[in-house]
Design a binder for these strands. Sequence first.
DNA 1: AGAGGTAGTTGTATAGTACAACGTGAATTG
DNA 2: CAATTCACGTTGTACTATACAACTACCTCT
Lengths: 144, 144
Amino acid sequence: MAHRDDSVETIQQEMTAFARRARATAARMHPELSLVSYTLLAHLDDQRGCRATDLAAHYFLDKSTVSRQIAALEKLGFVERRVDPDDHRVQVLHPTEKGAQVLANVTASRRQAFHERLADWDEADLDRFATYLLRYNAAQERLG
Amino acid sequence: MAHRDDSVETIQQEMTAFARRARATAARMHPELSLVSYTLLAHLDDQRGCRATDLAAHYFLDKSTVSRQIAALEKLGFVERRVDPDDHRVQVLHPTEKGAQVLANVTASRRQAFHERLADWDEADLDRFATYLLRYNAAQERLG
DNA sequence: AGAGGTAGTTGTATAGTACAACGTGAATTG
DNA sequence: CAATTCACGTTGTACTATACAACTACCTCT
Protein backbone atom coordinates (compact mmCIF):
# COMPACT_ATOMS: atom_id res chain seq x y z
CA MET A 1 0.00 0.00 0.00
CA ALA A 2 2.94 2.33 0.61
CA HIS A 3 3.81 2.26 -3.05
CA ARG A 4 0.29 3.14 -4.04
CA ASP A 5 0.28 6.11 -1.65
CA ASP A 6 3.57 7.35 -3.05
CA SER A 7 2.24 7.29 -6.58
CA VAL A 8 -0.89 9.17 -5.59
CA GLU A 9 1.23 11.74 -3.75
CA THR A 10 3.43 12.24 -6.80
CA ILE A 11 0.47 12.56 -9.13
CA GLN A 12 -1.03 15.16 -6.83
CA GLN A 13 2.18 17.16 -6.60
CA GLU A 14 2.96 17.05 -10.27
CA MET A 15 -0.52 17.89 -11.47
CA THR A 16 -0.51 20.81 -9.04
CA ALA A 17 2.91 21.98 -10.20
CA PHE A 18 1.77 21.80 -13.77
CA ALA A 19 -1.39 23.76 -13.07
CA ARG A 20 0.54 26.48 -11.30
CA ARG A 21 2.75 27.03 -14.32
CA ALA A 22 0.38 26.54 -17.22
CA ARG A 23 -1.13 30.00 -17.36
CA ALA A 24 2.17 31.80 -17.09
CA THR A 25 3.73 29.58 -19.73
CA ALA A 26 0.79 30.13 -22.07
CA ALA A 27 0.98 33.88 -21.53
CA ARG A 28 4.70 33.94 -22.25
CA MET A 29 4.34 31.91 -25.41
CA HIS A 30 1.18 33.55 -26.75
CA PRO A 31 0.73 37.09 -25.51
CA GLU A 32 -1.98 37.60 -28.13
CA LEU A 33 -4.31 34.96 -26.70
CA SER A 34 -4.48 33.93 -23.05
CA LEU A 35 -5.08 30.35 -22.02
CA VAL A 36 -8.73 31.07 -21.30
CA SER A 37 -9.34 33.02 -24.50
CA TYR A 38 -7.61 30.32 -26.45
CA THR A 39 -9.77 27.65 -24.90
CA LEU A 40 -13.00 29.52 -25.55
CA LEU A 41 -12.09 30.40 -29.10
CA ALA A 42 -11.03 26.82 -29.78
CA HIS A 43 -14.36 25.60 -28.48
CA LEU A 44 -16.26 27.96 -30.76
CA ASP A 45 -14.21 26.79 -33.68
CA ASP A 46 -14.65 23.18 -32.77
CA GLN A 47 -18.41 23.44 -32.26
CA ARG A 48 -18.86 25.69 -35.28
CA GLY A 49 -20.43 28.30 -33.02
CA CYS A 50 -22.26 28.14 -29.71
CA ARG A 51 -23.87 30.28 -27.04
CA ALA A 52 -22.16 32.04 -24.15
CA THR A 53 -24.19 29.92 -21.77
CA ASP A 54 -22.84 26.74 -23.35
CA LEU A 55 -19.28 27.93 -22.83
CA ALA A 56 -20.00 28.75 -19.21
CA ALA A 57 -21.51 25.33 -18.57
CA HIS A 58 -18.76 23.50 -20.37
CA TYR A 59 -15.90 25.23 -18.57
CA PHE A 60 -17.54 25.77 -15.18
CA LEU A 61 -17.24 29.51 -15.56
CA ASP A 62 -19.67 32.17 -14.42
CA LYS A 63 -21.71 33.68 -17.23
CA SER A 64 -20.32 37.11 -16.39
CA THR A 65 -16.80 35.81 -16.88
CA VAL A 66 -17.71 34.41 -20.27
CA SER A 67 -19.49 37.61 -21.19
CA ARG A 68 -16.35 39.65 -20.52
CA GLN A 69 -14.03 37.20 -22.21
CA ILE A 70 -16.22 37.21 -25.30
CA ALA A 71 -16.42 40.99 -25.22
CA ALA A 72 -12.62 41.09 -25.24
CA LEU A 73 -12.39 38.61 -28.10
CA GLU A 74 -14.95 40.61 -30.04
CA LYS A 75 -13.03 43.82 -29.44
CA LEU A 76 -9.96 42.11 -30.89
CA GLY A 77 -12.04 41.10 -33.88
CA PHE A 78 -11.68 37.37 -33.18
CA VAL A 79 -15.33 36.59 -32.50
CA GLU A 80 -18.62 37.74 -33.94
CA ARG A 81 -22.14 37.47 -32.54
CA ARG A 82 -25.18 36.44 -34.52
CA VAL A 83 -28.49 36.97 -32.80
CA ASP A 84 -30.64 33.87 -33.04
CA PRO A 85 -33.70 34.80 -35.13
CA ASP A 86 -35.85 32.34 -33.17
CA ASP A 87 -34.90 33.64 -29.76
CA HIS A 88 -33.71 37.20 -29.50
CA ARG A 89 -32.10 36.60 -26.11
CA VAL A 90 -29.58 34.25 -27.68
CA GLN A 91 -26.36 35.22 -29.42
CA VAL A 92 -24.63 32.50 -31.35
CA LEU A 93 -20.89 33.11 -31.23
CA HIS A 94 -18.53 32.35 -34.09
CA PRO A 95 -14.85 32.87 -34.70
CA THR A 96 -14.20 35.48 -37.38
CA GLU A 97 -11.84 34.82 -40.24
CA LYS A 98 -9.15 36.65 -38.30
CA GLY A 99 -10.00 34.76 -35.12
CA ALA A 100 -9.73 31.43 -36.88
CA GLN A 101 -6.37 32.50 -38.28
CA VAL A 102 -4.93 33.48 -34.90
CA LEU A 103 -6.34 30.34 -33.36
CA ALA A 104 -4.66 28.23 -36.02
CA ASN A 105 -1.33 29.95 -35.36
CA VAL A 106 -1.50 29.52 -31.61
CA THR A 107 -2.64 25.93 -31.97
CA ALA A 108 0.26 25.17 -34.27
CA SER A 109 2.77 26.75 -31.95
CA ARG A 110 1.34 25.03 -28.89
CA ARG A 111 1.43 21.73 -30.71
CA GLN A 112 5.02 22.41 -31.65
CA ALA A 113 5.94 23.10 -28.02
CA PHE A 114 4.26 19.92 -26.85
CA HIS A 115 5.98 17.93 -29.54
CA GLU A 116 9.33 19.28 -28.39
CA ARG A 117 8.63 18.43 -24.78
CA LEU A 118 7.60 14.94 -25.79
CA ALA A 119 10.16 14.39 -28.52
CA ASP A 120 12.11 11.64 -26.79
CA TRP A 121 9.08 9.65 -25.64
CA ASP A 122 8.34 6.45 -27.45
CA GLU A 123 4.96 5.87 -28.95
CA ALA A 124 3.71 3.37 -26.39
CA ASP A 125 4.49 5.76 -23.53
CA LEU A 126 2.76 8.65 -25.27
CA ASP A 127 -0.27 6.54 -25.83
CA ARG A 128 -0.44 5.39 -22.23
CA PHE A 129 0.14 8.91 -20.90
CA ALA A 130 -2.69 10.27 -23.07
CA THR A 131 -4.98 7.51 -21.90
CA TYR A 132 -4.16 8.14 -18.25
CA LEU A 133 -4.86 11.85 -18.58
CA LEU A 134 -8.21 11.21 -20.20
CA ARG A 135 -9.09 8.79 -17.48
CA TYR A 136 -7.97 11.14 -14.76
CA ASN A 137 -9.87 14.14 -16.09
CA ALA A 138 -12.99 12.10 -16.64
CA ALA A 139 -12.83 11.00 -13.00
CA GLN A 140 -12.39 14.58 -11.89
CA GLU A 141 -15.42 15.71 -13.83
CA ARG A 142 -17.45 12.88 -12.43
CA LEU A 143 -16.44 13.50 -8.82
CA GLY A 144 -16.15 17.29 -8.89
CA MET B 1 3.19 8.92 -37.09
CA ALA B 2 -0.53 9.68 -37.01
CA HIS B 3 -0.88 7.78 -33.79
CA ARG B 4 1.93 9.70 -32.20
CA ASP B 5 0.35 13.00 -33.22
CA ASP B 6 -2.97 11.96 -31.78
CA SER B 7 -1.42 11.14 -28.44
CA VAL B 8 0.39 14.45 -28.29
CA GLU B 9 -2.82 16.26 -29.16
CA THR B 10 -4.70 14.48 -26.40
CA ILE B 11 -1.97 15.17 -23.86
CA GLN B 12 -2.04 18.82 -24.79
CA GLN B 13 -5.81 19.08 -24.53
CA GLU B 14 -6.08 17.19 -21.29
CA MET B 15 -3.24 18.96 -19.55
CA THR B 16 -4.78 22.26 -20.60
CA ALA B 17 -8.22 21.23 -19.42
CA PHE B 18 -6.77 20.20 -16.11
CA ALA B 19 -4.86 23.44 -15.67
CA ARG B 20 -7.94 25.50 -16.40
CA ARG B 21 -9.86 23.80 -13.64
CA ALA B 22 -7.26 23.27 -10.95
CA ARG B 23 -7.42 26.64 -9.26
CA ALA B 24 -11.18 26.78 -9.09
CA THR B 25 -11.36 23.24 -7.79
CA ALA B 26 -8.78 23.97 -5.12
CA ALA B 27 -10.59 27.13 -4.10
CA ARG B 28 -13.90 25.29 -3.81
CA MET B 29 -12.41 22.51 -1.73
CA HIS B 30 -10.21 24.64 0.52
CA PRO B 31 -11.42 28.20 0.88
CA GLU B 32 -9.01 28.66 3.78
CA LEU B 33 -5.88 28.14 1.67
CA SER B 34 -5.58 28.92 -2.03
CA LEU B 35 -3.61 26.69 -4.35
CA VAL B 36 -0.66 29.06 -4.29
CA SER B 37 -0.68 29.56 -0.53
CA TYR B 38 -0.95 25.85 -0.07
CA THR B 39 1.99 25.21 -2.32
CA LEU B 40 4.18 27.79 -0.61
CA LEU B 41 3.26 26.66 2.87
CA ALA B 42 3.87 23.04 1.92
CA HIS B 43 7.30 23.95 0.60
CA LEU B 44 8.20 25.72 3.84
CA ASP B 45 7.08 22.71 5.79
CA ASP B 46 8.94 20.35 3.53
CA GLN B 47 12.16 22.33 3.59
CA ARG B 48 11.88 23.09 7.30
CA GLY B 49 12.02 26.79 6.51
CA CYS B 50 13.43 28.78 3.62
CA ARG B 51 13.74 32.30 2.24
CA ALA B 52 11.20 34.18 0.14
CA THR B 53 13.74 34.31 -2.67
CA ASP B 54 14.01 30.53 -2.66
CA LEU B 55 10.25 30.22 -3.03
CA ALA B 56 10.26 32.70 -5.91
CA ALA B 57 13.02 30.82 -7.72
CA HIS B 58 11.47 27.44 -7.14
CA TYR B 59 8.02 28.39 -8.37
CA PHE B 60 8.98 30.93 -11.05
CA LEU B 61 7.14 33.66 -9.21
CA ASP B 62 8.12 37.28 -8.89
CA LYS B 63 9.55 38.16 -5.49
CA SER B 64 6.79 40.73 -5.02
CA THR B 65 4.18 38.02 -5.51
CA VAL B 66 5.87 35.86 -2.90
CA SER B 67 6.21 38.80 -0.58
CA ARG B 68 2.47 39.45 -0.69
CA GLN B 69 1.55 35.80 -0.41
CA ILE B 70 3.76 35.44 2.64
CA ALA B 71 2.36 38.62 4.14
CA ALA B 72 -1.12 37.12 3.78
CA LEU B 73 -0.05 33.84 5.34
CA GLU B 74 1.57 35.72 8.19
CA LYS B 75 -1.56 37.77 8.77
CA LEU B 76 -3.49 34.51 9.04
CA GLY B 77 -0.94 33.32 11.57
CA PHE B 78 0.25 30.43 9.38
CA VAL B 79 3.82 31.60 8.82
CA GLU B 80 6.42 33.30 10.96
CA ARG B 81 9.59 35.12 9.95
CA ARG B 82 12.92 34.72 11.67
CA VAL B 83 15.54 37.25 10.69
CA ASP B 84 18.82 35.53 9.92
CA PRO B 85 21.29 36.71 12.58
CA ASP B 86 24.17 36.46 10.08
CA ASP B 87 22.46 38.52 7.38
CA HIS B 88 19.82 40.98 8.39
CA ARG B 89 18.42 41.21 4.87
CA VAL B 90 17.27 37.62 5.09
CA GLN B 91 14.09 36.36 6.71
CA VAL B 92 13.83 32.64 7.13
CA LEU B 93 10.20 31.62 6.87
CA HIS B 94 8.63 28.85 8.90
CA PRO B 95 5.13 27.47 9.26
CA THR B 96 3.68 28.21 12.69
CA GLU B 97 2.05 25.53 14.78
CA LYS B 98 -1.30 26.69 13.45
CA GLY B 99 0.01 26.81 9.89
CA ALA B 100 1.32 23.29 10.11
CA GLN B 101 -2.05 22.18 11.46
CA VAL B 102 -4.02 23.77 8.63
CA LEU B 103 -1.55 22.45 6.10
CA ALA B 104 -1.95 18.95 7.49
CA ASN B 105 -5.74 19.22 7.21
CA VAL B 106 -5.68 20.49 3.65
CA THR B 107 -3.09 17.94 2.65
CA ALA B 108 -5.17 15.16 4.12
CA SER B 109 -8.30 16.32 2.37
CA ARG B 110 -6.51 16.81 -0.94
CA ARG B 111 -4.98 13.38 -0.63
CA GLN B 112 -8.41 11.99 0.10
CA ALA B 113 -9.83 13.62 -3.02
CA PHE B 114 -6.99 12.31 -5.16
CA HIS B 115 -7.40 8.86 -3.70
CA GLU B 116 -11.07 8.92 -4.59
CA ARG B 117 -10.35 10.00 -8.11
CA LEU B 118 -7.77 7.26 -8.45
CA ALA B 119 -9.54 4.58 -6.46
CA ASP B 120 -10.18 2.21 -9.33
CA TRP B 121 -6.68 2.43 -10.82
CA ASP B 122 -4.41 -0.49 -10.33
CA GLU B 123 -1.00 -0.01 -8.84
CA ALA B 124 0.98 -0.44 -12.03
CA ASP B 125 -1.06 2.25 -13.78
CA LEU B 126 -0.67 4.66 -10.89
CA ASP B 127 3.04 4.11 -10.89
CA ARG B 128 3.33 4.68 -14.63
CA PHE B 129 1.13 7.77 -14.53
CA ALA B 130 3.24 9.27 -11.74
CA THR B 131 6.40 8.54 -13.66
CA TYR B 132 5.03 10.12 -16.82
CA LEU B 133 4.02 13.28 -14.99
CA LEU B 134 7.45 13.63 -13.44
CA ARG B 135 9.04 13.14 -16.81
CA TYR B 136 6.72 15.61 -18.49
CA ASN B 137 7.20 18.33 -15.89
CA ALA B 138 10.96 17.87 -15.92
CA ALA B 139 10.93 18.35 -19.69
CA GLN B 140 8.82 21.45 -19.31
CA GLU B 141 11.24 22.95 -16.83
CA ARG B 142 14.14 22.15 -19.07
CA LEU B 143 12.57 23.61 -22.20
CA GLY B 144 10.61 26.47 -20.65
C1' DA C 1 34.68 54.45 1.97
C1' DG C 2 32.33 53.74 -2.30
C1' DA C 3 30.30 50.62 -5.89
C1' DG C 4 27.62 47.23 -6.83
C1' DG C 5 24.87 43.34 -5.71
C1' DT C 6 20.97 40.92 -2.89
C1' DA C 7 16.55 40.57 0.02
C1' DG C 8 12.46 42.15 0.55
C1' DT C 9 8.49 45.79 0.28
C1' DT C 10 5.45 48.86 -1.93
C1' DG C 11 3.14 51.35 -5.86
C1' DT C 12 0.80 50.50 -9.88
C1' DA C 13 -1.39 47.93 -13.40
C1' DT C 14 -3.56 43.92 -15.46
C1' DA C 15 -6.13 39.44 -16.00
C1' DG C 16 -9.37 36.35 -14.46
C1' DT C 17 -12.82 35.31 -11.64
C1' DA C 18 -17.38 35.32 -8.78
C1' DC C 19 -21.69 37.11 -7.06
C1' DA C 20 -25.51 40.11 -7.17
C1' DA C 21 -28.58 43.20 -9.44
C1' DC C 22 -30.51 44.26 -13.52
C1' DG C 23 -32.90 44.46 -18.41
C1' DT C 24 -34.99 42.07 -21.95
C1' DG C 25 -37.29 38.74 -24.06
C1' DA C 26 -39.60 33.84 -23.96
C1' DA C 27 -42.58 30.53 -21.96
C1' DT C 28 -46.11 28.90 -18.89
C1' DT C 29 -50.09 28.90 -16.56
C1' DG C 30 -54.23 30.37 -13.99
C1' DC D 1 -54.46 36.80 -22.51
C1' DA D 2 -52.27 38.88 -18.53
C1' DA D 3 -49.17 37.90 -15.00
C1' DT D 4 -45.63 35.37 -13.29
C1' DT D 5 -41.67 32.91 -13.78
C1' DC D 6 -37.68 31.55 -16.29
C1' DA D 7 -33.49 32.05 -19.46
C1' DC D 8 -29.75 34.86 -21.52
C1' DG D 9 -26.72 38.14 -21.24
C1' DT D 10 -24.51 42.67 -19.26
C1' DT D 11 -22.81 45.58 -15.75
C1' DG D 12 -21.30 47.00 -11.02
C1' DT D 13 -18.37 45.63 -7.53
C1' DA D 14 -14.87 43.15 -5.25
C1' DC D 15 -11.17 39.98 -4.69
C1' DT D 16 -6.95 37.13 -5.91
C1' DA D 17 -2.91 36.32 -8.35
C1' DT D 18 0.35 38.17 -10.83
C1' DA D 19 4.27 41.17 -12.99
C1' DC D 20 7.31 45.10 -13.37
C1' DA D 21 9.54 49.05 -11.58
C1' DA D 22 11.12 51.89 -7.96
C1' DC D 23 12.65 51.88 -3.52
C1' DT D 24 15.02 50.79 1.22
C1' DA D 25 18.07 48.28 3.81
C1' DC D 26 21.82 45.65 4.09
C1' DC D 27 25.90 43.00 2.70
C1' DT D 28 30.46 42.33 0.10
C1' DC D 29 34.42 43.39 -2.25
C1' DT D 30 37.93 46.21 -3.74
